[in-house]
C-alpha cells in the first residue's frame, strides 16, 4: 500500500512537471488518475534504453539539484543519467559499515557508490580498479569493513590474490546484474553476503534473500524503492523521484517468479533465468 501511495505521488509530479515531456510524449495523454493497484501499470507503455539514447537529458529531467551525471554504456552507444544527491541517499545498495570500500570495473559506478556512502555519512575509499596491487593495498590498509563491488572486480580480486587478508570485511555488497553464485559462495560466507540487483541507469531494484543464500539459492526480492513486473523479461519501476524517473523500464534480464518460504518481510520472490 505504501508503495502505491509513493507511486501515485511520483506520477502526479511527472504529470504536473512544466518542462520535462519525456513521459508525456511516451504515454500520450498521461494516465494521471491515482492508480488503485499496480495492475494498472499495464496502461502505461514501457520504456527501453533506446528511449534514453534518443532523448537528450534535458527532455528527461524532472528534478533539479546538486547532481552527479553518469555516462551509461549501452551496447556500443552511450547516454547520460543524472543522480541527485538527495535521492541517491535513499538507494538500497547494501549494508554500510564505518569504513566502506568501493571497487567497480566501471568508474562512473564507483564514483556514484562513493557519493552514496558520503550521503549516508560514511567515508568511502574508492579503490583503483586499474591497479590490483594498489586496490588490495588500500582495501587492507583502510581496514575495510564493508565492500561495495561488482562481480567481475570481486572475481579478479580473489583470482589474483586468493591469500589476501579480507578478515576485516563484514559485509560484501555485490552490485550488478550478473553473479556467479557458486564462485561467490566458494569465497564468501553467505551470512556476509548481500547481492544487489542493479543497473547503472536504474540503481538498485532487488536484493538477495538471506535465507536463500544460506541454502545456496539465489532468490531475489524487490527492494523497497522498486516495483517489479516479473514475467519473463523484467520491467522495473522505481519509486524514487529520480532526475529521470524510471517507470516501466524493460531490461535485458529474464526472471521467473518463485514460491519461496523465507523470513523476509517482502514476499515477492524471483530468480534470474
Amino acid at each position: 500500500m505504501k508503495k502505491l501511495v509513493q507511486f501515485n505521488a511520483l506520477l502526479e509530479q511527472i504529470h504536473n512537471h512544466p518542462d520535462a515531456d519525456f513521459y508525456r510524449k511516451k504515454w500520450g495523454v498521461l494516465y494521471a488518475h491515482p492508480f488503485d493497484s499496480f495492475e494498472d501499470l499495464k496502461y502505461l507503455s514501457i520504456i527501453m534504453a533506446e528511449d534514453f539514447l534518443e532523448n537528450p537529458i534535458e527532455k528527461r529531467l524532472y528534478t533539479k539539484g546538486k547532481s552527479l551525471t553518469k555516462i551509461i554504456l549501452y551496447g556500443p552507444r552511450r547516454f547520460l543519467i543524472k543522480r541527485e544527491l538527495n535521492e541517491l541517499r535513499r538507494e538500497q545498495y547494501g549494508f554500510l559499515g564505518e569504513r566502506p570500500a568501493v571497487l567497480f570495473k566501471d568508474n562512473h559506478e564507483a564514483i556514484e557508490k562513493s557519493f552514496w556512502c558520503y550521503e549516508r555519512n560514511a567515508l568511502p575509499l574508492i579503490a583503483e580498479n586499474a591497479n590490483d596491487s594498489a586496490a588490495l593495498f588500500s582495501i587492507e590498509r583502510y581496514n575495510t569493513d564493508s565492500l561495495f563491488c561488482d562481480f567481475s572486480m570481486l572475481k579478479e580480486l580473489f583470482d589474483k590474490k586468493p591469500d589476501a587478508d579480507f578478515s576485516s570485511i563484514r559485509h560484501y555488497n555485490i552490485i550488478g546484474d550478473y553473479f556467479d553464485s557458486k564462485l561467490i559462495l566458494k569465497y564468501i560466507e553467505p551470512k556476509k553476503l548481500n547481492l544487489i540487483l542493479a543497473l547503472s541507469e536504474t540503481g538498485a531494484f532487488a536484493f538477495s534473500c538471506p535465507d536463500g543464500l544460506l541454502s545456496g539459492k539465489m532468490i531475489f526480492h524487490p527492494d523497497r524503492n522498486s516495483v517489479l513486473e516479473i514475467n519473463g523479461r523484467l520491467i522495473i519501476t522505481k519509486l524514487l523521484f529520480m532526475p529521470t524517473p524510471v517507470i516501466r523500464y524493460m531490461v535485458d534480464i529474464f526472471v521467473e517468479s518463485q514460491e519461496y518460504d523465507c523470513n523476509c518481510e517482502e514476499k515477492v520472490s524471483f530468480a534470474i533465468l
Binding site: 558520503y118 574508492i126 594498489a134
Partner: peptide, 19 residues
C-alpha cells in the same frame, strides 16, 4: 564524513602505493 577525503596514490611514479 563529508569533511574528509581519502587519497590513494598508485605508486606509478615510483615508490609504493599510499593511502
Amino acid at each position: 564524513a563529508k569533511n574528509y577525503t581519502i587519497r590513494v596514490t598508485s605508486g606509478t611514479t615510483g615508490g609504493s602505493p599510499l593511502l
